[in-house]
């Protein structure tokens, strides 16, 4: 064997180690986020759609303009929450696509621990949610929404963090249905939830029965808490709603996830 052959053919190593943090790493996370942002449909619903709604319901609406800053801010925050909701859900639900394409199965042939995979999914979802909030707030700020600095920050943080409940919801749906087009079915469901969260019209304008029902839906607490820095009215019920729904969807996602990733 010549020296050239040796460099071409190093011996296969027998010394082997397991991967740190179950395979969780920044490179994979970065690639994942870049990839998700290539999806035009996702981008539209997260970045463009909330702003269009803001223009339609807010700036294009005489009553809203007449009602002043509070109304515009109310609509902007609601739309940011909507974008964050769609972003988080689609981030979580992308596991459905990956399962149907066999990517999850491919990953099972690598040292990636299922919990590391889910953690990266959650962080990707939260990134999409953050982008939705930031883009809607930017459009709002450039188009006449005036709020105090602390209101901007608190409302933004509340919209972003509370919409985490929908990352759990997305994961639950994603592990439940291995369908490539799961978001097409979940999308309308999200719109209904958004309505019960008072995102499209204030809950007080709904019939009494629907207002009561709305309190038990997942978006209720998120909407209320995100708008609270602007209009007040945060309740323990709202906080409880966010926590309970997050736990419920989380438990559902974990159960589906365990069924899906049982290792031999």
């Amino acid at each position: 064997m010549t020296a050239a052959d040796i460099t071409l053919a190093p011996a296969i190593s027998v010394e082997r180690t397991t991967t740190p943090y179950g395979g969780f790493n920044i490179t994979a996370l970065r690639l994942e986020i870049t990839r998700v942002l290539r999806n035009r449909r996702t981008l539209f619903f997260i970045l463009i759609f909330p702003s269009i709604f803001f223009f339609m319901f807010g700036l294009g609406n005489k009553n809203a303009r007449a009602a002043g800053d509070i109304a515009l801010g109310y609509i902007m925050i609601s739309m940011a929450v909507y974008g964050a909701m769609v972003g988080n859900t689609s981030g979580g639900a992308s596991v459905a696509l990956e399962r149907s394409l066999g990517w999850s199965r491919q990953l099972r042939l690598t040292p990636l621990h299922p919990l590391a995979y889910v953690s990266m999914k959650v962080l990707t979802s939260m990134t999409l949610g953050l982008l939705a909030v930031l883009s809607t707030f930017t459009i709002g700020a450039l188009n006449g929404v005036h709020m105090s600095a602390s209101t901007w920050i608190m409302a933004g943080l509340a919209a972003w963090i509370c919409s985490f409940v929908f990352a759990a919801f997305g994961l639950f749906v994603g592990f439940l249905f291995p369908a490539e087009n799961v978001m097409q079915f979940v999308g309308p469901l999200l719109a209904v939830m958004a309505m019960f969260g008072g995102l499209f019209i204030p809950l007080s304008q709904l019939p009494q029965g629907m207002q009561t029902f709305a309190k038990y839906t997942p978006m209720y607490g998120v909407g209320l808490l995100a708008r609270a820095p602007l209009v007040g009215g945060a309740t323990a019920w709202a906080a409880g709603s966010v926590i309970v729904w997050t736990v419920l969807f989380g438990i559902g996602a974990m159960a589906m996830f365990k069924r899906d990733t049982a290792r031999v």
């Binding site: 490179t27 690639l31 394409l101 990517w103 199965r105 491919q106 690598t110 040292p111």
Partner: peptide, 21 residues
């Protein structure tokens, strides 16, 4: 199966590589 269409070839390999020590 087992591949994501919206990754490039290099990204797919890079992603997988990042999972190994």
């Amino acid at each position: 199966g087992g591949l994501l269409k919206d990754f490039t070839v290099a990204e797919t390999v890079q992603y997988t590589a990042s999972l190994y020590p």
